[in-house]
Write a protein that binds this DNA or RNA. Structure first.
Lengths: 209, 209
DNA sequence: ATTCATATACCTAATGTTAGGTATATAAGC
DNA sequence: GCTTATATACCTAACATTAGGTATATGAAT
């Protein structure tokens, strides 16, 4: 059975290189290519039926994250494999959140790319070996939120002040508490929601409160 | 000419005290009262026509900020005077942003309250003398934004990464720059937009980008 | 009485942000 | 050539946040 893929990258030379490499794989066939995310969507709308989309992240007109979100929503059977120079955890997690099933960096060898494609087609996730170990935390985070830990009344109140941009000291004065108390509530909010940054909390609150 | 006011505060005793004080003013008449923001809106919908609304901030069901935003939008001729125990700059600015024309704290004497009401009816802003001096910066901020300073391409790019919750170091790695460079761009963004906090930038970006 | 959840409070240290200042390089416009 | 805007880079210090840990008090449920 042939695995049909589309390659999206703004560097045509890179696309050609990957096509050449994959042409040596007996069961992988490149059926399309694009230089930005929007071109991929057009190919899909015209009826092209790939199994896997290999996509760069940083592309003009529509980047890989936006493409992944759209494809995951509109074509849920399609698998997305990110192929990118970015190797930070935050980059990987952003693609996972968008719906990607795998992530490899552009410095892996052809064997690993081959393995990646086969792995995600099989239904598993795949990450190249050079990526940080803490990507695994993403799966644990899913579990924490599944446990549905609700914020207490006070925690919700603090979160609302966080969204307004208040500092801990300002909140403490507002609520007639010690700054230490506010910081403890903040710490508990971070822990309950599995979110590490203030900005992450703001974005969460805007979506859920 | 009589100035007609509504008083909103969740402490009925406080309302009664203010009514009593203002009853001694020959040209001020209390025509209504409410224990939360929603009750005020109902009074207005029933046809009550005040000149000024005296409102606390911290009230159940609908707080003073939300009330002020709604009234400023739906009844633009009405003047709002905040009467609150909160005395931090951020509290005052939040009410100004919502549309209030004045702000006095609950520990001012009756003469200052009287003056506040008359001042805002006249069309000027009024702030009790015990409030921080830097409230004046709010008026300068209006000017800065009026000058319509646009962010550069790079600044916009940084702002988008800020919204995603990236740290300066992460951005630097992503963009292949020094962290110092990213920090400098951030500093310039804060300056251009007149916004001091990261969270403020996030909220700005979500509204404008 | 005991346990649990919540609220309040504290301490420490590491990391991240903000704001003041400095500087050079490049490209575009005059 | 000069000026301006933008990008890049650096330094310092103060402030703010995060995360690990500690503790007590209160109210509700068992």
């Amino acid at each position: 059975m042939t695995i049909k893929i589309i390659i999206a990258d703004d560097h045509q030379l890179f696309i050609d290189g990957i096509k050449s490499i994959l042409s040596k794989s007996l069961d992988i066939e490149t059926i399309g290519e694009a230089n930005n995310g929007l071109q991929v969507l057009k190919l899909l709308e015209e009826g092209l039926l790939p199994d896997v989309i290999l996509t760069d992240i940083r592309m003009p007109i529509m980047d890989g994250v936006t493409l992944t979100k759209t494809v995951s929503k509109d074509y849920p059977n399609l698998k997305i494999l990110a192929l990118s120079m970015f190797d930070q955890t935050v980059d990987v997690i952003e693609m996972l959140d968008a719906g990607a099933k795998g992530y490899v960096t552009k410095n892996v060898d052809k064997t690993e790319l081959d393995t990646a494609i086969h792995t995600i087609v099989k239904g598993d996730y795949f990450f190249s070996a050079n990526l940080p170990e803490d990507i695994k935390d993403w799966f644990h985070k899913e579990n924490n939120i599944a446990n549905n830990q609700l914020l207490t009344k006070r925690e919700t109140e603090i979160l609302q002040l966080i969204v307004k941009g208040r500092t801990s000291l300002q909140m403490a004065k507002h609520l007639k508490l010690s700054k230490y108390t506010v910081d403890t509530h903040r710490k508990n909010i971070h822990k309950k929601l599995g979110i590490k940054s203030n900005t992450g909390l703001v974005n969460y609150a805007l979506k859920h409160l």
